[in-house]
Amino acid sequence: MKARIVSLCIFLLCIPAVCVAGVLFFKERAVSFAGTGIVLLMLAGYFYVYEKRNSQAWELVIVALMSAMSVLGRIVFAFLPSLKPCSAIIILTAVYFGRETGFMVGAFTALVSNFYFGQGGWTPFQMLAWGLTGYFAGMLGKWLARNRVLLLVYSAAIGVFFSLLMDLYTCLWMDGKVIFSRYLVMISSALWVTVSYAVSNVIFTGIFMQPFGRVFRRLCIKYGIGTYHPQEKPSERTELH
């Protein structure tokens, strides 16, 4: 409860405070200061709630394993130019283990893979973008798990969303504010990247859908973890404690 109040305070007080500070101190670059501040605060709020929540040991371990898998995926699939499996892995994890696990897997994937590929101002934006990828997938998990076509469509759409958010970040840094015409130019010049995100998401989700689903369903049946499929769970389900 206390954690909720604190995170609410972060959202209601600190975010306007950051905006005001941006306008007060950095007049020309107010938007980029406020944008970065808001992204950082959203992450801070989410991580704070995560810290305070009572989570099971398996949740942490699954988050760690799947983040490590998607970092590994980024390494082993490096021979394919501009195709990355990270989003697909995040989406599938979120579908089978719920939205909070999905968010954390996305955020940690961005954070840890940047240990290898270089940290920068883009890290918080990437963390948020991938985190939201997982969060939304977890929210829609019930439908996505049942309907394969919907899953593929979702992964294509979220690839476009990811690319647009990263373009927004580039735009914020380049101009200090969002000039709409420049944003459009940026989007159209990064069109190839957007398409490659969407395509790689669809390809990898298509490839991993069945084998990952099998592994996760097995974990669910054997240990009773995850949020998946009541009809496949044994009726007298025991929690892992």
């Binding site: 099971q56 040991a57 398996w58 942490l60 371990v61 699954i62 760690a64 394993l65 898998m69 590994l72 995926g73 082993v76 699939f77 499996p85 991993f208 084998p211 990952f212 099998r214 592994v215 974990l219 054997k222 240990y223 973890i225 892992l240 404690h241």
Partner: peptide, 20 residues
């Protein structure tokens, strides 16, 4: 890659039980 996941996933649950 998938074989890697299925090999590691149960080992990882083992870790969580040990943590508990």
């Amino acid at each position: 890659f998938t074989a890697c996941l299925s090999a590691q996933s149960e080992r990882v649950i083992d870790i969580s039980m040990s943590m508990k």
